[in-house]
Amino acid sequence: MKVIKNYLFLLFLIISLVSCSSDDTENGTNNPDNNLNPLEYYQELNVPYGNNSDQVFDIYLPANRTLETEVMILVHGGGWSAGDKNDMNGFKDFLRSEFPNMGIVNINYRLADENNQPYPMQINDITSIINHLKTKQDYYVIDDDFAFIGVSAGAHLSLLWSYAFDVNNNIDMVCSIVGPTNFTDPAYLNNTNPELQILLDLYGLDATTEYLEEVSPYHRVTASAPPTILFYGGLDPLVPTTQGTAMRDKLQDLGVTHEFTLYPNAGHGWIGLDLLDTSFKLKAFIEAHFD
C-alpha cells in the first residue's frame, strides 16, 4: 500500500504546473576542514547558484557517501514560464525510497516571460548548477557525474542540455517524461491549439527554422548522447505523439541506448497501471545505467 501511495503521489507532480516555494533550510554538520561530514545525512534547501531569486536548488545527500556517490538532478515542468522545484518532490521521495545511497538535487531556474525567452537563459542556469556541483565536489563529497529526470518543459531542458551542452560528458543518463523534442515538427508548426501556441511563442513569434532546430533535442542529439528513457501519452494535448516517436527513431538510428514507452490512452500525465509501469521501468533504467 505504501508503494502504491508513493506512485500515486508521483502522478500529481507529473501533471502539476505550479506549486508553492519553500524557504526552509536544514543543514548537516560540517567537518573542521569546512567540508561536509560524509558519514552524515545532509540536506539544504534553496541553495543559491545565481543572483536571481529563482536561481536556487534543494540538495539531499545520503550518509556514508564517497566521491563516487551519484547525484540525480530533477527539473520541473510548467511550460518554461511557470512551475517550481516543489512540483518534483514526489520524484525526490521516490528516489530516496528506492535509491537511498543516491544524492538528489531539485532545481529551480529562471522562468520565461514576454521579456525573457527560455533559451538560452534556462540552459545557462543548468550549466551554472552543474558547474557549482563540480566545483564543490569535495565539499559535498559526491561524484562529478550526474543524471536528469525532467517533466514536460523540464524534460525538454534536460534532453537539450544532455545532448548539446554536456561538453565534458558529465551526464550518465536522462529521463524525459512528456518532454517536447522537436519544434520543427509539423504537429507544432501547424497546430490549432491556442494554449499550446502560447507556450511555443515563448521561443519567438517569428522564430527561424535554424533557431527552432537549435532549441530542439531532436536536432542536437549525436551518437555520444547518454542513455535515454522516454515516456509519452498518446492523447497529450501539449506534446504530440510524434515528439516521442521521432526522438525514439533518431536515437535508434544513432545507436544511442534508449527505451521508449507510449501510453495510448494517456494525456499529459497518467495514473493507475500506466503510472506503476513508468515507475518500474524508470527504476530499472536507473539501476542499469546510473545506480
Rank of each mutant, 00 (worst) to 15 (best):
G77N: 14
E114Y: 05
A246H: 10
N106P: 03
G204T: 09
N86M: 11
E287Q: 14
V105H: 03
L189F: 02
L61E: 07
K283W: 00
E44G: 00
G28D: 06
E210T: 11
T261A: 10
A288F: 04
T25H: 07
P226F: 03
Y109E: 06
E68L: 06
P240F: 07
T242L: 13
T184Q: 14
P227L: 05
P120W: 07
L189V: 14
D249V: 04
F146I: 03
E98W: 02
L235G: 01
T208G: 07
L251C: 10
A153V: 09
I177K: 03
M102P: 03
P120I: 06
H268A: 04
T261I: 09
S16K: 05
L189C: 02
S21G: 14
I4R: 12
V141W: 03
Q243W: 07
Y60T: 11
F165C: 10
A153T: 12
V56M: 10
L95T: 10
I130N: 01
E195F: 03
Y163N: 04
E70I: 02
T66E: 08
N191R: 13
Y188I: 15
K134C: 12
P194S: 08
E98L: 02
F148V: 00
W161C: 00
D274A: 12
A266T: 07
I59F: 09
Q197V: 07
V167H: 11
Y41K: 15
